[in-house]
Design a protein around this nucleic acid. Structure first.
Length: 107
DNA sequence: GCCATGGCTAGTA
DNA sequence: GCCATGGCTAGTA
């Protein structure tokens, strides 16, 4: 149950456009995307929208990870997400993106 | 009422 | 670990 207080809502398009700006070898976070869209607390909503991604082939939703550098969710499993990211040059230490802050794109 | 998050406390060692 | 957050959907009326 929710009482709506905000006038502006994030749309799927807003999110997909930003996703398309993340180059291979870089990552972003759910929270960073939320902030870039002017909704600093909407990280979880961003996750929901990304999970709906109608076109996982052309929209690089695998480049979005959690704010602490953990892998985050993926439709085909975290393992698959990790493999794709590694193919793009991202490395992992344990479950964390190596040099996370350096690989993290700022919009 | 769910959820591909995140930030902040309590409380252990 | 708790819970606020924001967008969504199932399912009741």
């Amino acid at each position: 149950m929710k009482v709506k207080t905000s006038h502006t809502s994030i749309t799927d398009q807003d999110v997909y456009i930003l996703l398309s700006k993340i180059p291979p070898g870089k990552v972003s976070t759910y929270g960073d995307i939320a902030k870039a869209l002017g909704h600093p607390k909407a990280a979880r909503a961003i996750g929901r929208i990304i999970a709906n991604n109608p076109n996982p082939i052309s929209i690089p939703c695998h480049r979005v990870v959690k704010s602490n550098g953990e892998i985050g969710g993926f439709a085909y499993g975290e393992q698959r997400k990790r493999e794709i990211l590694e193919k793009e040059g991202i490395k992992f230490q344990n479950r964390i993106v190596e040099n996370f802050e350096e690989q993290r794109l700022s919009f």
